[in-house]
Write a protein that binds this DNA or RNA. Sequence first.
DNA 1: TGAGTTAATAAAAACGTTTTTATTTTGGTT
DNA 2: AACCAAAATAAAAACGTTTTTATTAACTCA
Lengths: 354, 354
Amino acid sequence: MSDRSRNSRRTPPTIKTLADLSGYSIGTISKALRGSPVVAPATKEAILKIAEEVGYQANARGMALRTGKTYQAAVLMPVTAVPDYEWDGVEYTQILSGLSQTLEGSEYRMSVLTIRDAEDGLEAARRVVDLGLADGLIFSGILQDDPRINFLVEADFPFVSLGRCKRELDYAHVDVDNEWASHAATQRLISGGHRRIALINPRSELCYAADRIDGFTRAFKEAGITASSDLIAGGDLSTRFGRESALDLIKRSDPPTAFVCVNESTTLGVLSGLRDAGKSVGTDVDVIAYDDINVSAYFTPPITTFYQPIEVLGRTLGQFLLKRMAGEEPGALKQVFRPKLVARQPDDLGKKKV
Amino acid sequence: MSDRSRNSRRTPPTIKTLADLSGYSIGTISKALRGSPVVAPATKEAILKIAEEVGYQANARGMALRTGKTYQAAVLMPVTAVPDYEWDGVEYTQILSGLSQTLEGSEYRMSVLTIRDAEDGLEAARRVVDLGLADGLIFSGILQDDPRINFLVEADFPFVSLGRCKRELDYAHVDVDNEWASHAATQRLISGGHRRIALINPRSELCYAADRIDGFTRAFKEAGITASSDLIAGGDLSTRFGRESALDLIKRSDPPTAFVCVNESTTLGVLSGLRDAGKSVGTDVDVIAYDDINVSAYFTPPITTFYQPIEVLGRTLGQFLLKRMAGEEPGALKQVFRPKLVARQPDDLGKKKV
DNA sequence: TGAGTTAATAAAAACGTTTTTATTTTGGTT
DNA sequence: AACCAAAATAAAAACGTTTTTATTAACTCA
């Protein structure tokens, strides 16, 4: 073993090594290794055996140069714009983890490019395409009219987005049914007697902010009540934003009796703000959250959430991307997940209020 | 622009393009581009001008094959072993973000390999070294006797670890002064009158678990009190673990009056457990946390923490790795950060108890 | 037997660089 | 004017693959 490792440390075996060892030419070796049907079964077997013995591993750089492929899938990871390192962007460990699980079996590796916003992401996407930095791309934080999607569809470059844009384009994507989740949460509160409900939402450029507003207003409409659209707050998804929004909303003249939050970070902030405003969640006011990481069970108090582990989405992203990189059309590569309702509170305080 | 992009889309300019355009040979072009002193200033300038005009970008695959370098820095990212997607491993977005900030200016890109544990990490490290998947490596979760550090030091491969092992080896690293932080937290509680203090710690294989125990016991020793070593809990750093530890510890016959927690996730769990055990933090029991993401301010109640944004460590990791990859010796590439105390509670409940 | 196929393999070219070696040009000395 | 060294550039080789083209060997069938 020390011998093998010493050898492989000096100069790893190449196709040439195998050629010398087996007596076949390098072309034949290459074909045998990638299972071309033109090479005779016996020689193929012999070559494979030698390759195994000597611990041959194809040199990625050689392959890359020849084929023009990189065998890399790139992920655009937004680096938080929130100052002071607030809790934000947590979901990316989950995305990367899920993604890598599906990439693991393949020959692809994962590279991460950090971006500041969607515009910066377009820059990065251009670099990936023009310089051939990767064979496929994954990104999230989709805008209503997302420049990255526009560019990549036009360039016909394989990608899968986490989230959908509003334009009618044919592209692979994975998403959460935000309209549905927001509607379900709002409806739950309305049937709990609430009439004034606040919506803690992402910035309005983000496409799913609109989806959530749609679901929110649809629930009111269906109940025949005027939607409390004046209680919609949009911003970065930091804990601080949640807190400040809650503090602002709760001291309005006609304040909300309930909150629908977009993620766990803002939820924590909302809970913090309500506490400092002297409101007790579950007694004075109800809060329903959306949760990726199963953390709402530990909040004070535990609150009702719509739960969707992003890692599952990450796995699907990977599957779709592999298919796209293998040349499959985006047509069938679209999936929308519905988060699961985890009811931890009755959320019917509104009844007592009336 | 449409013209340029169309051109570059078809076939990006190569050195050969520049050779044809300029009349110089490809060798000269190459030397000019990388600033070799042997090429005459005038021709160098001419070549650079043409390269600029035509938008030349060196082909990474060609460079990689020739030089044997990959221009990639790999990060070993632990994919959480905790079931049900609990809050865990949050800090990796910060590490990646910090790292990418320093790599941004360089010619290096960042690739991420997911691993299950340190042993799996050794496998990954071997692959990186043997197959030349990257030119440098970053990883964390260091064990007391870490197989990855042992292997990489032996192989003389550039790496920087987030955390230190217990063996006397010369390697670049960035770390938090866990002994100090744990000592400071414990001391604060002891001088607040606490005598029975619980320590919520990582699994004992992790090197910094030992550091934290060291600081913990040192604080007791200095105060001339017997350390409450029976109140040390070690486990994964999930919220669930924090909660279960708190519930277990608080119902002991001689229970703790205070908790020192290792990160924000366990802290949230501890707070949740204490609440369900009928204990009020700040009234019945004190909790001091360690925090990466400034989230303890929003807990119920806000609690005292030692605060150290990991992104800063990530930037240092990147700086050190660049130097290592440039051939610098590890000697000077060692830095230990002391987190900042953020006192949000008096933490002197122990006085009332006595 | 020998031409025509087919199967199997070898040889060569190519991907885009960098580096080493060879050649040409320039300028200075005698 | 002739020579030599130095400077500048060109040419060639190499990195490890894959793919295309060429060659050889083995059959088939009249």
